[in-house]
Amino acid sequence: MKILVIGATGTLGRQIVRHAIDQDYSVRCLVRNRGKAGFLKEWGAELVKGDICEFKSIESALEGVDAVIDAATARATDSLTIRQVDWEGKVNLIQACAKANIKRYIFFSLLNAEKFEDVPLMNIKHCTELFLQESGLDYTIFKIGGFMQGLIGQYGIPILDNQPVWVSGENTPIAYMNTQDMAKFVIKALEIPETVKKTYPLVGSRAWTGDEIIQLCERLSGKTAKISRIPLGLLRFLRGFTRWFKWTRNASDRLAFAEVLASGIALDAPMDEVYETLKIDPQEITTLEAYLQEYFDRIMKKIREIDYEKSKMKKRKKNSFFK
């Protein structure tokens, strides 16, 4: 089976590519910048230059492809808006797949997307779900909560660097999952016919609030976090202000996600059916405690090694001074 991965350089996309290659799939990646995607080619993936916002480039990328895994989404720094990438681009992609008679299509949405019409990314994800369901494609939709990988920059690094950890005034629990584990579910879905035209949650073993994650990081690192809380009212003001400028519109749309965090509706869902259908053992899935433990163990070991080398250098300088 030949797979086309969209968004292959992203946090989730690259793990899907890596795992698919490890499982002996033939993988093609649609990329906008070959230079930034060189590591995918080194892994064994075929790179095709193109953009989902350009219909013709999608058509050529789909030649000889059996399945499409769509892990693309607009980034805050993109020149294109969330609507252009996550709606107009996805419509292009889905229509091109239908025209090319692609066998399978896997899409990533967000948990509770249907409940937040006023949050641009959530609303667009929900609308894309509906559009995909009516497309005639043999789709599988995975609704995710959050990536464990994102917690390193948000919590781990600031705590180790003695810098402020910025959190919103609200504390909605989120069931984070390791993207390496997500990739296992995705590739398994391609192999199991029962996943066709189905929607599944894809989340970790439990939901965590920001305060609980901070406490966990403090315990694992032995350091105390400097916590700075951002009032929801300020985030709403910043969202309204940034809407006035075209170059900050993506940032504005992402600030709207604060309404999801303020809702108190946990980004979590039962996974029993998913584990059973995809024949994956829950014990093989990384817990947040284990993920952060590994991170802090690795970093603290590196810090000790650096301190040891510095101590040796100081002793050498001291001894050479008195000779």
Rank of each mutant, 00 (worst) to 15 (best):
L80W: 08
I52Q: 03
F116C: 07
A96Y: 04
N92A: 09
M271F: 06
G169M: 01
I16H: 06
G146F: 04
A183P: 02
D297N: 12
R219W: 10
W166P: 11
L220C: 08
E129Q: 06
P120Q: 03
K2W: 00
Y308C: 10
F237C: 12
L4F: 05
T248K: 05
E59S: 11
V48G: 04
M271G: 05
Q154D: 08
K99I: 12
K315E: 13
I214M: 02
R32N: 13
L232Y: 13
F321N: 14
L292I: 07
V48P: 10
L130I: 15
V31A: 11
L160Q: 03
V5T: 07
A256I: 02
D70A: 08
C53Y: 07
E305N: 09
I285P: 01
L93G: 02
L255C: 05
L278N: 00
I157G: 07
I192W: 01
F131G: 03
G64N: 08
A189E: 02
A256R: 08
G44V: 03
F107N: 07
A76T: 15
D138M: 10
R83W: 14
K314P: 06
F237A: 14
A74K: 02
S263A: 07
D211S: 12
E191W: 02
Y176P: 06
L238V: 10
V260N: 01
G44S: 06
I157D: 08
Q215D: 14
W244E: 13
R32G: 13
K2V: 02
N162T: 07
G153Q: 03
P193H: 00
I21A: 01
D181E: 05
M1Y: 05
G136N: 09
K301N: 12
G146L: 02
I265F: 04
Y105C: 03
T242A: 11
Y155S: 00
G210M: 15
K301H: 12
G13P: 10
A269C: 01
L234N: 06
R316Q: 13
I174H: 03
M300L: 15
Y295V: 04
D307L: 15
V167E: 07
Y275Q: 00
E194P: 09
N171K: 11
N250V: 10
F322L: 15
G156Q: 03
A20L: 01
F116N: 00
D211I: 11
G64P: 05
Y139M: 08
C217M: 11
A258S: 15
K49D: 02
V27T: 10
N178L: 12
K41D: 07
Q293D: 14
A251L: 14
S252N: 10
Q154S: 15
T277G: 04
R28E: 08
Y291G: 04
K197E: 09
K41N: 09
Q180K: 13
D307V: 14
A74S: 11
K36V: 11
R304D: 14
E273L: 05
M313E: 15
I141E: 00
V27P: 07
F245P: 11
S26I: 09
I69D: 02
G222H: 04
E309H: 14
E170W: 13
G233F: 01
E259C: 08
I227S: 00
D272F: 05
I265L: 04
V31C: 12
T128P: 00
L220P: 09
L190P: 05
A96Q: 01
E114D: 13
